[in-house]
Nucleic acid binder design. Sequence first.
RNA 1: GCCCUCGUAGCUCAAUGGACAGAGCAGCAGCCUUCUAAGCUGUUGGUUGGGAGUUCGAUUCUCUCCGGGGGCGCCA
Length: 615
Amino acid sequence: MLSVVDIIQTIMFQKEQQLIEEKIKEYCAANDIALADLKWQPIPFSGEWGFATSFFQTAANEAKLGKGTKAPVPQKAQEIAGQVKVKIGSVAGISHIEAVKGYLNVYFETSDYARRVVDEVLNSGMDFGRGAAKTETVMVEYAQPNTHHSFHIGHARNTILGEVLARLVEFAGYKTIRASYPGDLGLGVITVMWMYDKLYKGQEPAGVHERGQWMLKIYAEATALLEKKENETPEQTAQREAYEAERREMYRKWDAGDEYVRELWDVTREWSLEELREILHMLDVKIDVWFYESEADEPSKAIIHELIERNIAEDERATGGPVIIKIDEKLGLTKEKYRTAVVLRNDGTSLYLTKDLALAKEKFEKYHVDRSIYVVDFRQSLHFQQAFKILELWGFKQAGKCYHLSYGYVTLPEGAMSSRRGTVVLFKEVYDEAIKRVLSVEAEKSVDIPAKERQKIATQIGLGALVYSLLSVDNNKDIVFDINEALSFDGRTGPYIQNAHVRANSILKKAGAAGYELQVTGYEYELTKQEIELIEQMSQFPQKVQQAAEEYRPLVMATYAYDLANAFHSFYHAVPVLQTENENVKNARLRLVAAAKQTVANALRLLDIQAPDMM
RNA sequence: GCCCUCGUAGCUCAAUGGACAGAGCAGCAGCCUUCUAAGCUGUUGGUUGGGAGUUCGAUUCUCUCCGGGGGCGCCA
């Protein structure tokens, strides 16, 4: 992984850094100092830019060898830094060098650095920050809701995390494949079909989302009928058991390929998939490959035979048991860690794990995936640990590059969401509410937005708020969903970042109207601290892309986008652009604003948030 | 019993070996005849759950204890 300094050097100060490194080594060799590896880092913001290294390790080495003065390590480090500073003297392109608290700080020529960063952003445009093309193919699997329910806010977290990760990985330079895996099979699915067939056959609300929400109600109703109650009368018990028998019978018929039940399944399944496709469209998500649980079923059974033959799995069906894999035993572990996994039921039907094995095989063999990322909630950690270990035992070398991006649940203040009980917050409800709230703010604040643009911009801002609120928490943490927090437009939010883009655009638009054109120019004047901080933030973008992609952490980009927007808002407030008298300064600042707008736009794009020109 | 995960300001969260632990919200004090105030500036607030260890240096790594959440052979 590249460090901040690597990136800065890649674009800008490679030569200077190498030269200084050589001088440090020379000095230490000449004076018999046990120099530790030189690790460069950025200087914490001080109004100038540069890179730094510390001499603590070197000082500690010296102390262990009993050399030099007996001063404490920090003091010794400072002494060495001071001596090195003197030895290096002056370097072309470097404004000055300081020895501070055991660190050697090397500062760049400010005007030079500013020009290099702004030129780099404007020359690259939409591609500013894009990583060099890499040879590996990465597949990101996300958006795996069950069909026959409706899409709730928890599914939204999953989908947004997956999509943003895919965008990051792609922009970092990997060939990227987006995969969805809807669960269109199982008892939950059958339960809805049973209730629908029994009570609602022939009915169907108009509207894709209404229909999805209607199915969720049917599911909750069915669950209530099938649930054992306290103090049931004998009649009630008999009724419930009769219902249960009907449901089981429908499941059996589905399995046997009964024409009526399959037709029922096709129709209702398509209703859900239509809603899913509609929501993915709203979120600007374009899935490349659709896997369906129902299609993984058959191939998965065949795999188990191979695993049994190769002595990886053990068939206990003769004695009434299932087919199992004793993972810990195969790995020679004495403590239980991966445990024993069941890979085929006694009756020969497949399980969740069975299907995931078949799916992985297809990903590796048909799609030539080198790295495989699964965006699935944290409750399935053991499942994936088992799946990856089995793939390893099976001989897939890609198993080592399978990664479970586990994330916490979205819960409500009153507790967990439950589709069974119908106590969920639907994505569509929040989406509608978001737009409503933005429209009411627009009515008050954005009188100059044309009526026909309002709805579109409200959608962009509303979604921006929601998406950012789901991305700005590290994935391993649960989110207690509070709609007022999720749809806040103040402070550390999506709209705050979008507003930076709008403000930059507003200046450029005015400049254009006044006849100004962007011209290549230098930064020879005395930069304000706000300009320096803004340029500093922009220069970090390429490195943040790589970090977020390599660590599989959308949060890194979410945090960065806020810091960047924050730097722009401070700049906007403190530094005049169009009001500047000096033409050279005005040109330089206009270029800076254009570069900032571009960087904000690129960051927002990676976060799956739209960048409006006005709001 | 075993495994995973979390514990940081009143609240919601950042920071994974380095310079005074940072933001937002809430609170307090200011800033709109000036490129959009969905904004900016200042300020209050911390024994990073407790203890021990490794290290020149620990919110970060190790051990232990306390507290919350999750998981553990035929649900997905």
